[in-house]
């Protein structure tokens, strides 16, 4: 790890290589020619995950591949993360792709990002000379932009474990292996009595639907198990969608994206309630 940080500090043109499922597309398709490439996949501490019962949280190494999240004990602790991981690409992509890479690329369509946003994840960033803990909301700054500076690497991500339902849903025009047209992650914190909703691919960054969340808290007592009427769920969806600013491109239209996230938000809320 120290060696990695030394290398990164000495080469400010360096590209970190994790699974390469974004970086190699940049190289092969978009003609990117990184001067220095530093692989991180071999660093055991970045490929581990740890359950910390004391702080009731899980820390996930940035280079842990998706295939380790979609099933097994980590999937049981964080079902929304497992569902998001399962939607990424194909088995080959999931065997290589990592959270660190999803954060490095920071595409609004990145499937892990809404999960990190809904869970209020903390991103642990290391540099030879310093370290920073960054809230996800502050980490992603725009379309394919984040707040990393040269010499920094994402080491790991910590998310709190909550009691309550959580889930991820993603719309694409194909039943598997498709880039998100719109996505949503909903996390119910039954102790705090709160529902967090994060929306993907409908704005330059991941959107936390804070107004809809607050509105819902006023409508329904969200402590423990709860029920919502179809009308409340419907309105929750519409309110969440109004917090987005989607675009029209070759993948879909702004109108459809806004509509789709409202449906996803409604359905996820209904699932969390039943």
């Amino acid at each position: 790890m120290d060696h990695l940080l030394e290398l990164l500090a000495d080469h400010d043109d360096a590209s970190v290589l994790a699974g390469g499922t974004d970086l190699m597309v940049e190289v092969n398709l978009h003609g990117r020619r990184p001067g220095t490439v530093i692989p991180v996949g071999g660093l055991e501490e970045m490929r581990e995950w740890n359950h910390r019962p004391r702080s009731n949280s899980v820390t996930i190494g940035a280079a842990l591949p998706y295939s380790d999240m979609e099933r097994g004990p980590l999937a049981e602790l964080l079902p929304a993360l497992a569902q998001a991981a399962r939607t990424v690409g194909s088995p080959q992509i999931r065997a290589a792709g990592t959270i660190g890479g999803n954060l490095g690329t920071c595409s609004p369509a990145g499937d892990i990002l809404p999960v990190l946003a809904a869970l209020d994840a903390t991103i642990h960033v290391l540099h030879r000379d310093h370290s920073r803990d960054i809230r996800f909301a502050d980490f992603m700054t725009g379309v394919k932009r984040n707040c990393l500076t040269p010499g920094e690497v994402v080491h790991s991500v910590t998310v709190p474990l909550t009691r309550g339902w959580q889930g991820y849903a993603k719309v694409g025009t194909r039943n598997a292996m498709v880039i998100s047209t719109a996505s949503a992650c909903l996390v119910h914190d039954a102790e705090e009595g709160h529902v967090a909703l994060a929306l993907g691919a409908v704005a330059p960054t991941i959107v936390r639907a804070v107004k809809a969340e607050a509105w819902l808290s006023r409508q329904v007592d969200l402590r423990g198990t709860f029920r919502v009427s179809p009308e409340t769920a419907h309105e929750f969806g519409l309110r969440a969608a109004s917090e987005t600013s989607p675009i029209t491109d070759h993948r879909s239209t702004a109108e459809y994206r806004r509509h789709a996230v409202s449906v996803l938000a409604r359905r996820l809320l209904e699932r969390s309630a039943s």
Partner: peptide
């Protein structure tokens, strides 16, 4: 759930 429209995206339940 993978055989419902939306597939791995888990967008729908059979009742939808």
């Amino acid at each position: 759930e993978l055989l419902v429209p939306g597939g791995t995206g888990l967008t729908a339940l059979p009742s939808n």
